[in-house]
Design a protein around this nucleic acid. Structure first.
Length: 172
DNA sequence: TCACGGATTCGT
DNA sequence: CGAATCCGTGAT
């Protein structure tokens, strides 16, 4: 147990990685040494520039740059001026895609998750394989079952993209 | 340099 | 249903 995930899982495409990250343990270590361990219960996949729901659909900008990096990095951004949303970059270099952590057992909702983990701008580009303040470990269960649903809050992307079943929820 | 609006949440 | 609250993005 307490085994940190290796590069393999992050090198996959976002849709596959989003399913596999369910049930894994998100670990946040604070400066005072205390740790929070939250089981990932809900994810969403954002896949490439052609995905109009993905921020990278606007091309490579200072904000989306990290999505073009190799999988295993952290992409955080501020939404509605209040919440830092946590995303895990996946796939090979120069193929922008990421998995949004939409909820954990300790905090339902992406905004609450970011609040729980006390995320901020400094986590942009953090390496999950070498960071000493945030990483992901193997979970307890092996027989993970999940439910699929359309992604939330991206109506503007049009029906083709907003209706894709790229939202994954861990079954109880 | 400026105006716009968002991968949300909470209270009315 | 609407306010809170800020900065990246694209237009001026």
């Amino acid at each position: 147990m307490n085994k940190k995930l290796t590069k393999d899982i992050y090198s996959q495409d976002a849709v596959t990685a989003a399913k596999e990250l369910l049930g894994k343990v998100l670990v946040r270590r604070f400066e005072d040494g205390t740790e929070i361990r939250a089981v990932i219960t809900e994810t969403e996949a954002y896949h490439g520039e052609e995905d109009l729901g993905c921020h990278a659909s606007k091309g490579r900008t200072p904000r989306t740059d990290v999505m073009y990096w190799e999988g295993g990095h952290v992409y955080v951004y501020l939404i509605y001026g209040m919440y830092w949303l946590l995303n895990i970059v996946t796939g090979p270099k120069d193929h922008p895609q990421a998995v949004l952590i939409r909820g954990t057992d300790l905090a339902p909702g992406p905004g609450r998750t970011g609040k729980l983990l006390k995320l901020d701008k400094s986590f942009y580009g953090e390496d999950l394989l070498t960071s000493n303040r945030i990483w992901i470990e193997e979970g307890e269960k092996n027989d993970i079952k999940h439910t699929t649903a359309p992604r939330i809050g991206i109506e503007y992307a049009g029906p083709e993209w907003s209706q894709k079943p790229w939202r994954f929820t861990l079954n109880d």
